[in-house]
Write a protein that binds this DNA or RNA. Structure first.
Lengths: 167, 167
DNA sequence: ATTAATGCAAAGGATTTGCAATACC
DNA sequence: GGTATTGCAAATCCTTTGCATTAAT
């Protein structure tokens, strides 16, 4: 569903490198995250991990995610709260990317751009701000849904046809 | 605490214009949002509104926020989940802006940049995506906290001193 | 052997919902 | 008067926590 090619070392390697204790549960959770073909929320991660070890507990999932977040090995996404308030996770990649989420069909895309890095640099420079995490969420209608629904009445803020001002 | 000068018509006007029924509760909530000097979460909005009308109910607050979101009159922010999972709200302004949130002192800043609009236009063009909402969250350390804590050991991803690569 | 991680079950916080009562237009 | 909105209280969803048990180094 989604290629995730940009990882550096495996999560397991990263944890080992930092002297974090590797438990059976963690091993499974790390692999599950890394092998996932989409963004996982905690409940899904739990379900997938339990296929390998029925014993794995919800609390462990949350604690592991917390650990990985603190070590900055995963990113947390909201994906525009398309489906409730849960969070989604993905192993950090070398290049920051953002996630256009389609309100109509629920599709999540990925997007990278040098502009993103330039924007980050600008914030940092102008505000004297040291950026640890950036999360750019984009909601609207994807290409397919725009094509199917007639775009005559398109009310999105920024339309790909450039017909609308970005106000 | 935070100037909010960029609104167009008042929220009340906008709702009236769209033929939405104006109730006493809504009137108070709209005013409260608009007069706020900071980003409000639902609980704070409720508390402030109850100062004017003790009767106002939590459910009404959530329903009104939902309404305003749907009509795209307010923006919803997570502010990096600095304080739990609640959401924050602000009346939409003419110019999109983002909110660097300091993990150390909790300070929320504001930032606008033409790059932000260019990035949005690029996403829209390249992905054929029609953008309805954009939410750019930035977490790290603010200028003041960077100055007080020695920045020798700065581990933020993008440092304002430009000492670190943006990886 | 020591210390950190786990499982369990219960608590917590934020938000949503069904339904009868109320208030707007 | 008809219909949308409200208040209330319970429910739901997601996440966190305390503590006794278990497992990693």
């Amino acid at each position: 569903m989604k290629p995730r090619p940009l990882e550096r070392r495996s999560l397991l390697q990263e944890l080992t490198l930092r002297g974090v204790r590797i438990t059976g549960q963690r091993r499974i959770l790390l692999e599950t995250i890394q092998e996932a073909d989409r963004h996982l929320d905690a409940a899904t991660l739990l379900a997938l991990a339990q296929k390998r070890d029925r014993q794995i507990n919800r609390a462990t999932v949350y604690r592991t995610l917390e650990l990985l977040k603190k070590l900055r090995l995963i990113d947390e996404l909201d994906l525009m709260h398309l489906n409730g308030e849960k969070h989604f996770y993905e192993a950090k990649t070398n290049v920051d990317h953002l996630h256009p989420a389609c309100f109509q069909c629920g599709q999540i895309e990925e997007f990278t751009s040098p502009l993103f890095d330039r924007l980050k640099a600008e914030i940092s420079r102008q505000k004297g701000f040291h950026i640890r995490v950036v999360r750019l969420e984009v909601g609207g209608r994807c290409r397919v849904c725009c094509a199917s629904a007639s775009c005559e009445g398109c009310e999105e803020e920024v339309c790909c046809k450039g017909e609308r001002p970005s106000i």
